[in-house]
Simulated scan of single mutants.
Amino acid sequence: MDVVVGRVAKAHGIHGELAVDVRTDSPDERFAAGSALVGKLRDGTRRTLTVAAARNHSGRLLVRFEEVLTRDVAETLRGTLLFVSTDDLPPTDDPDEFYDHELEGLRAELLDGTVVGTVLEVVHGPAGELLVLKRDSGEALVPFVKQIVPTVDVPGGRVVLDPPEGLLDAD
């Protein structure tokens, strides 16, 4: 299984550098020189990209890949999702830290065991992480904080929710 670690936002400069929106808590490790990433282009094709260099710039990471030498080539990568294999991820030592792929697909239930949906994805926003729940009535966004999601039971295949009144109400 692959995990998204970034998305190419745009080309930067004339030498093939790319501005990348980071989607990993370990950018120094994921985008270290010599790291191989899989890029899924907008047309669905995949290609391996090897990091030549990376640096922070204006809230984004600027990345040079060995395979991208010009701005013209860099422009073709706009919107490309960058992946690593879950096999390459180190285990987390913190019991309250999870990789997104570990949460996706978990059953979401209330404290009393009532099933309210399934975790579709984890959205990383400026104010924190949100769980996107797939529900019969559509999708719901749940802040991924201890007060609302007190239990994450990956081996048991579930997250337990204690939502404030109205959070899961259908419009």
Rank of each mutant, 00 (worst) to 15 (best):
A53G: 01
T92R: 15
P143D: 02
V160M: 10
V154N: 03
D2W: 12
E165Q: 14
D87Y: 07
V3K: 05
E165R: 14
V122Q: 02
R23V: 01
I14L: 12
G105D: 05
A52R: 15
S137T: 15
E97T: 14
K134L: 12
V159W: 00
V51F: 12
A33M: 01
L61G: 04
G44N: 05
I148K: 03
V159Q: 06
Y99Q: 08
R71A: 14
D171L: 14
E66W: 01
D112R: 09
S58C: 00
E109S: 11
D93L: 11
L106W: 06
Y99H: 15
P155K: 07
R42Y: 00
P163A: 09
E129R: 13
L161W: 07
H57M: 13
A54Q: 06
S58P: 00
F98M: 11
G157L: 04
D93R: 12
A170S: 14
A170F: 07
V84I: 14
H124D: 14
D96C: 04
E104K: 12
S85N: 12
R78K: 15
K134C: 02
V154L: 05
V159S: 05
G128A: 05
T86S: 15
D43N: 15
A53D: 11
T80M: 11
P91T: 05
G79M: 09
G128P: 05
I148C: 00
K146H: 12
R135L: 03
H12I: 07
A53K: 13
R71L: 10
E121C: 01
G6S: 09
G157I: 10
E97Q: 14
E139T: 15
G166E: 13
E121N: 07
V123S: 07
D171H: 13
S137I: 06
